[in-house]
Design a protein around this nucleic acid. Structure first.
Lengths: 170, 170
DNA sequence: CGCCTAACGTTAGTGCTCCGAACGTTCGTT
DNA sequence: AACGAACGTTCGGAGCACTAACGTTAGGCG
């Protein structure tokens, strides 16, 4: 059982995902909410497009998440007078409270997730993961990928039921 | 931007997921296939239920994955004469070749994923992740969770569009 | 000014992974 | 013989990431 790192990653991530998901579902939220509220709280109001860029959330998913936050009263969507294309997203007082609540919840989950690790190990883990993220973010954003797309379908179609997704490289 | 470990995990996992997904889609496969073929190759033939337990793949997803592998000729499904409920899943020669191919593909992806890390750092990362997995696997299997389920809905329903999933603790 | 491009917000739909519920079949045990 | 358990299967749903397409608005340029 020589497990590949990517397997370890996706597996642990699945656990993390489950823990976070359950923890958030218990208060009627999900991961996107905290990400968005945190960004709004720390980096200020923004248009949806900006928010998407800041949080890495896809624009099409942003709509739904913001709808939820808006109907919850955690966020206000108001048209930008300076640019009528834009919606300005502002965090409300309730939203700030909510952000704190979710952050606490998330912290609990961290504790649960990292339980078997000592403090310095946790730091080490975060450091390593951070390095990976940094690297792939650089590569991902820099490369417009003119050729990677071509490689995608080179050997495709070995199995009937499965087709090449055409999911972009970024 | 003090990023939480779970965020780092899910983010890096997302990258890993994307890399693996694309890498496998290029040859018309997906993650399940390698997991299954590896298990069959190293631990031998098994019934579907056993396979599911071995690989951690949900039985309902197993069916589809095995269908794909079967139509690809990588795996044979034959009824167990000793127990007519059971299907015995055997890996074919093509399946072994396929397993090697996918493993290579996976290895490439590892290289890409872990590019910024030195060898000893990669080991450290694997070690830490492994510890987390071990821990949660133990906890997850031992706990039948009589009370956790109850907590799940305690504060639910803050937001209309989102409901408590009731997704099991394991 | 008119045209065209680019950005913006939105909707709809796909894919993968993980999960729960239900059904019909078969096996063991009692 | 009857019952509970395991097995394989199908259906559906959640979460996250992503593509495609559309209508709207802003700006640059001839």
């Amino acid at each position: 059982m020589d497990h590949l790192p990517s397997w370890l990653l996706t597996q642990t991530a699945a656990h993390a995902h489950r823990l976070v998901g359950d923890g958030f579902a218990a208060v009627g939220a999900r991961g996107y909410h905290l990400r968005l509220l945190r960004s709004l709280a720390t980096e200020g109001a923004a248009s949806q497009a900006d928010l998407g860029r800041r949080t890495g959330i896809h624009l099409s998913d942003l709509v739904g998440a913001l709808n939820e936050l808006e109907t919850g009263g955690f966020v206000a969507r108001s048209p930008d007078p300076a640019d009528r294309r834009r919606n300005v997203i502002t965090i409300t007082d309730d939203g700030l409270t909510r952000a704190v609540q979710l952050a606490e919840r998330a912290a609990q989950v961290q504790e649960e997730l990292l339980a078997p690790l000592a403090a310095d190990e946790r730091e080490e883990l975060s450091r390593l993961l951070w390095r990976l993220l940094e690297h792939h973010r650089r590569v991902g954003s820099v490369t417009p990928d003119p050729e990677a797309a071509g490689k995608m379908s080179e050997v495709a179609g070995s199995i009937p039921g499965v087709r090449s997704t055409g999911r972009g490289t970024r």
